[in-house]
């Protein structure tokens, strides 16, 4: 049985026994490479389920939709390890109750899709632990190295070229599971910290602050990057910040549902070599 069929059967079982009220998965999209979210409430709806190497989107953000989890009923969801890390973060930040989530875990390895062992978030802690342990050696995006090699003037120009295209559509925010704020900082206008019109200064400020808000929270799922209509390589910044919090504070986002947010905690011996 293919993994898709296996999971289809499991979804039907979960839905028909009433173990979950809904399962969030993937269905075909507008092109062969695209997948769309599928919200299954009945076993029949599971027939549309697709699980293949095109299922790269992180669906975790749908869990925090207003009201979905408020009735204490359980919801199933297809997640890759990055998605599992994001539900850990959402749980750690009190946005959802992890016990309500049934994880249908999978991973994409080249041309293969593999099932992951376990159904509750905690079952994957060893897996996430090993991802963390391997993070320092994991191949870095060559562009990050390239940017770091530049001098500040070149770096500034590089990012200006990128940010200048931003149209402030906030698709990145919409796509990000961690951007669940009821009111985003850009929409806070008393005072208006971030210039909202899409001129370059405002674009820079917006992108810096969003990256700051995701430091230590970004799981690298790439949702924002894919959502951006003008192809700003947002994941480079977020990945760079991920390296930073890992190196400086040994913090790897989404380890567990009890992980303390990196910017709401501290250690007395945190590094401070940069302080005069």
């Amino acid at each position: 049985m293919t993994i898709q069929e296996k999971y289809k059967a499991r979804v039907k079982e979960l839905l028909s026994t009433g173990a979950v009220k809904m399962v969030i998965g993937y269905k075909p999209g507008s092109t062969a490479e695209r997948r769309r979210p599928l919200f299954m409430r009945s076993p029949e709806e599971a027939d549309q389920l697709v699980l293949d190497t095109a299922c790269i989107a992180n669906l975790a953000g749908y869990l925090v939709a207003e009201g979905l989890l408020s009735d204490d009923k359980r919801v199933g969801i297809f997640l890759k390890p990055d998605g599992i890390r994001s539900i850990n973060i959402l749980a750690a930040e009190a946005q959802l109750n992890i016990d309500q989530i049934v994880v249908l875990g999978f991973d994409i390895d080249g041309q293969e899709v593999n099932a992951l062992e376990g159904e509750s978030a905690g079952d994957f802690s060893a897996l996430i632990e090993s991802i963390k342990d391997h993070a320092p050696e994991a191949p870095r995006n060559p562009l990050i190295e390239q940017i770091e090699q530049m001098n500040p003037i070149q770096r500034f120009d590089f990012w200006q070229t990128e940010f200048s295209r931003c149209i402030k559509c906030y698709a990145c925010r919409q796509a990000c599971p961690m951007c669940y704020c009821r009111r985003c900082i850009v929409d806070s206008n008393q005072p208006q910290w971030i210039n909202t019109s899409s001129h370059t200064l405002g674009n820079l400020e917006w992108n810096i602050i969003r990256a700051f808000h995701l430091s230590g929270r970004c799981v690298g799922c790439g949702n924002c990057d894919r959502a951006c209509p003008v192809n700003i390589p947002l994941r480079l910044i977020n990945a760079r910040m991920g390296q930073e919090v890992l190196g400086a504070f040994d913090h790897f986002a989404g380890m567990s549902e009890t992980q303390e947010p990196v910017l709401a905690s501290f250690k007395k011996d945190d590094s401070e070599t940069f302080i005069l």
Binding site: E93, Q95, C181, E260, L263, A264
Partner: peptide, 13 residues
């Protein structure tokens, strides 16, 4: 209270 997302970061900090 209208805009608070209840993330409890402030509670911890």
């Amino acid at each position: 209270e209208t805009t608070c997302a209840g993330c409890w970061g402030c509670v911890l900090a």
